[in-house]
């Protein structure tokens, strides 16, 4: 091989490397553009609406007269969905994880884990359908006063939706607890219940907590199920049987209509999305941080 051709190979190599770098760097650009767009439009929004009104106002009626831009009803609606995760996905997910990591045979595990993954792979719009056509009628069967669109139904299906994620992350956390701790506890005359609830779960608690934080983040960002099942009524309520609206559902509602760019309504999209983005980002960073810390304990 001549010196020249060797050099041309090297040239090609360095061009390739730059192309590869750009592909990887695209993700950083994406984040930067998202943040830029959100902040720019949100700042324009704050020229018309004060930050205080937006963050602490208790009425959200940007599409009706008299217009009002207090995000708290949307936050309350989102919080109701999160309650569903806390009451449903967390306990069931932990119980599934306990079963998978402490009791299940390798065979049972190999069947149940993929089954739960199927639940995770079902598109969210399907959960919306399920909420509306199955869960809501079921609730109304027991509590006839329930509104057709209600927070409870959406919260339940969002809970089901994030369940596999909670179960799988908690399973990881419990399995990361060294076997020697279990054996230590058994050698002291503990039953499997005592070993699980007093040694294994406490040792994996930070992982379980991280799973919960990440699941809450998922629930806050969930869109289709809440849009279909929870309704479009910004409602500062804690009653899960009433129609509410979440931040995500509001964004969908506006984009379903024909909103001209530059209008105040158009800007509310970005203001709400900024809150949504910031909240989920903080939760995700917090969640992964806890997860990384608890891994270090045993490594």
């Amino acid at each position: 091989m001549t010196a020249l051709s060797r050099k041309s190979i090297r040239w090609g190599e360095s061009i390739l490397e730059r192309v590869f770098f750009l592909c990887a760097f695209l993700s950083v650009i994406t984040t930067a553009v998202v943040i830029f767009i959100l902040i720019r439009e949100t700042l324009i929004f704050f020229e018309s609406v004060s930050v205080t009104e937006f963050l602490f106002g208790t009425r959200w009626t940007p599409l009706l007269e008299p217009k009002s831009y207090g995000i708290l009803p949307l936050v309350a609606g989102t919080a109701l969905i999160v309650v569903g995760v806390a009451l449903l996905a967390l306990p069931i997910g932990v119980a599934c994880a306990v079963f998978l990591s402490e009791y299940a045979s390798a065979r049972a595990r190999s069947i149940i884990k993929p089954t739960l993954e199927i639940l995770a792979g079902i598109p969210t719009v399907v959960y919306g359908f399920f909420a509306l056509t199955f869960v809501t009628p079921l609730i109304r069967n027991f509590i006839p006063d329930t509104q057709v669109f209600n927070a409870a139904s959406a919260a339940i299906v969002v809970g089901i939706m994030v369940l596999p994620m909670v179960a799988s992350l908690c399973d990881d956390a419990l399995r990361a607890v060294p076997q020697s701790l279990r054996h230590g506890a058994y050698s002291l005359g503990a039953t499997s219940f005592e070993v699980t609830t007093r040694v294994v779960v406490p040792a994996g608690l930070s992982g379980i907590f991280a799973a919960f934080v990440l699941a809450v983040s998922r629930a806050i960002g969930e869109t289709m199920a809440v849009t279909l099942a929870a309704g479009a009524t910004p409602n500062l309520t804690l009653n899960p049987l009433e129609s509410i609206q979440t931040m995500t559902a509001y964004i969908v509602q506006v984009s379903l209509g024909d909103t001209p760019a530059g209008s105040l309504t158009y800007q509310t999209l970005f203001a709400v999305a900024t809150v949504l983005f910031a909240t989920t980002l903080i939760l995700n960073i917090f969640g992964t941080w806890i997860m990384r810390r608890f891994r270090e304990v045993y490594e």
């Binding site: 993700s27 994406t30 767009i37 999209l269 999305a273 989920t280 980002l281």
Partner: peptide, 24 residues
Amino acid sequence: LIEVNIANLAGVPSIVFGILGLAL
């Protein structure tokens, strides 16, 4: 920075990507 950024992007709600698509 790139690695952390990718991990965080994976957790961004899909609707935020929708906003990005709409604006950009």
